Structures are given as C-alpha cells and as structure tokens.
Simulated scan of single mutants.
Amino acid sequence: MEDQNDAAIQRKHQAMIERLSNRHKTRVQDKEEMDSSPSFESTDSFLARFAKLKESINSELVRIDEALESFTKKDLDSVSISISELEQLLAENSYHLPSYEVRASLKTISDLKESLENVSSKLVPRKKFSFKSKAAKQRQPIAAVQKEVQVDKGNAVSHEETRIVIDTPGFRNREGEILVENLKGKDMGEFSLLDLSSCEVRLVGRSRAIFIHGLRNCKIYAGPTLGSVLIDDVEGCVFVLASHQIRIHNARECDFYLRVRSRPIIEDSSGVRFAPYCLQYEGIDDDLKESKLDEETGNWANVDDFKWLRALQSPNWSILPETERISSVCVSTADT
C-alpha cells in the first residue's frame, strides 16, 4: 500500500514537472516571437533610438533658426516629417513601454512640435487677421483651442497639432446631419471634425490622422488611422475608431469602441467607457491590414489616465458592459 502511495506521489510530481517545463517553453517561445517582431524594441534600444532621432531634429531646428535666410518652407516640412516619424516610432512601441516612458516621450514630441512652430513663425510669418470672408469667421473655434493649449501645454492636443487643424479637410459647424466621406483612393492626409452637434459621421477608408474638437451627442464611425486620433472637448458621443495612437482630453460621458496599437490616453475626462472596435464596411479588412491594425491587441481595455496617479483603478473610465455594447456597425460605401 505504501509503495502504491509512493508511486502515485511520484507520478503527480512528474506531471507537475512536465507542466512547469511546458509552461517555461511557452514563455520562452512567446518572448522569442516578440523579440523577432519588426515593431518591437526593448526599452533601452527604443530610448537610445528615440534620443538619437530627437537630437537630430533639435540640431536641424537650431541650424535653421540660426540662418533663416538660407532655408525655405520645404526645410521645415522635412523637419515636420521627421517629428511625425518619431511619433510613429513611439506609437509602434508604446505597447511594450512603461507608462512613464510613454508620457516622457509624448512630452518630448510636444516640445519638438512647439520648437518647430516657433521657428516656422519666424521663417513664414503668418498672414494678418482679416474679417473679409466667412472662412475667417469659421476659424474662430480653432483660435479658441489654440489659446487653451498655450495656457496648458501638458494637454493631449499640442500647439502644433492645433495649428494643423486649420488647414485640414473635414466637417465643421454642423448640426443634426449625417456626414459621409469616402477616403478610399485619396491621399492619406489629416481629417478634422470640429464643432458638431447631434451628427452621425461615417469615414470610409484610411486617414493619416484625425483631429476632433467640440462635439456634442455625435456618433463617429471611422476606418483605420495610420497615425494618431486626437480628441478634445466632447460630450455624450459614441466613437468607433482604429488607430496607432488615441489621445482623449476633456471627454464626458462618451463611449469609445477602439482598436489601438498603443494604450489609449485620457486626461481631464470622466464617465468614459471602452469596448473593442466593431466597424464593418467593404474592404475594411484590407484597410486594417495595410495600416498594421489587423491584429486585436486588447489595448482598448488598457487605458492610461494621466490625471490619476494612484495604484487603484481610475474612477474616470470603465469597461463598457457587454450587454450595453453595439454588436456591429456596418457602413456601406454606397452611402458615400
């Protein structure tokens, strides 16, 4: 009887060893796959590469600033592209980085954009303000955003990002409308949604970036965004978005259905809820794949609240209960 008990114990012990061995092998394999991924960098290698690119951009800005007469707007555009590439590098790696490194890198990018704006204002003086056209009048809400950002440079929408909004295509100052834009076959530029009330927006296809400000009780359904989605001052809205980076500032009582490569960032927000991306339209699988957003990372549930520094769960956001979620939103390209 004692021999049988010993044999049983040995079998259990051997089974436990095999389970632990298999678990270890799985972890090693997962790590090797992660390390071999072209978008993954260790924290140290990322910081070294990020710092090198940052210094290169800073040096170029100093060089232009010290000899303005020798440079043109094309030189500034080149620096702007370099900053965008730096931001893209962060977006592709932020999933693996500690939160404090992401915040520090975002601050660096914001400072670079502000430096570019300062140099740009010297090289390309802005036109004098004029009341001659309605177009100038429509830009007043953007001027208000600029003022807010200048007061608080830590906000998710930076000075440079707000300046870009002025010249981007998009929908502005609409109420109670269904607004549809087919981006397929077009140059992947930025798109803006500004001062909309009780509107439904359908963006089919890919964009480079989306800027959102001043929305009330709206529904936003958008195809994949290669860069960032920047959201500010929204209330009572539903957003269905896919992007490499999503930053949300001053949102109240909104639901976000997201697919995102990096962790979503919220700031000065409350009552916001999150769920997985659920948009469908003809060709969306190809659009997601080309934008490197075909994989569900689960980051929609990994939200960073920059104004909540405690270890406890932030009270400002929550997971949207499955019973309250939209199962799927289908947008036909024929609607465009």
Rank of each mutant, 00 (worst) to 15 (best):
K127T: 08
K122P: 10
K113A: 04
V124Y: 06
S133G: 08
K134E: 15
S115K: 15
K113E: 14
S120Q: 14
F129N: 03
F129S: 08
K113V: 00
S121D: 15
F129V: 09
K122D: 11
D111N: 08
L123T: 01
S121Q: 14
A136K: 04
D111M: 10
S130C: 05
K113T: 01
A135P: 06
K122E: 12
K113Y: 10
K132S: 15
F131P: 14
F131H: 02
S121Y: 07
S130A: 07
F131R: 00
S120C: 12
Q138Y: 10
I109D: 09
P125A: 01
K113D: 07
S115V: 01
S130I: 00
V119E: 11
E114K: 12
E117F: 04
N118A: 11
L123I: 04
F129E: 13
K134L: 15
S130T: 06
S121W: 06
K137Y: 12
I109T: 02
I109N: 04
Q138L: 13
V124T: 13
P125Q: 03
S120D: 07
F131C: 02
S120V: 12
S121K: 15
E117G: 00
S115G: 01
K127Y: 07
E117C: 03
K113L: 06
F131N: 03
E114R: 11
V119T: 11
F129G: 02
L112F: 08
S110N: 10
L116T: 00
R126C: 03
K134D: 13
S130G: 01
S130L: 04
S120I: 06
S121P: 03
R126M: 14
A136Y: 15
S133L: 13
I109C: 05
A135E: 14
I109P: 06
F129T: 02
S121E: 15
N118Q: 12
L116Q: 07
K137R: 10
S121R: 15
P125V: 03
L116K: 06
K128Y: 01
K137S: 06
L116E: 11
Q138I: 05
P125F: 01
K128S: 09
V119L: 11
K128Q: 02
E117K: 07
K128F: 06
K122G: 03
K128R: 09
E114L: 15
A136R: 08
V124Q: 13
V124R: 07
K122R: 15
F131E: 10
V124P: 05
K128L: 11
I109S: 05
E117P: 00
K132T: 03
R126D: 11
E114N: 11
S110M: 09
S115A: 14
S115I: 02
S115R: 15
L112D: 04
L112A: 05
K132H: 08
K132I: 02
E114A: 12
E117H: 04
S110E: 13
L112R: 01
S130Q: 09
L116R: 04
P125I: 01
S115P: 00
I109W: 10
I109L: 08
Q138R: 12
K132V: 06
N118K: 14
F131S: 02
I109V: 06
S120Y: 12
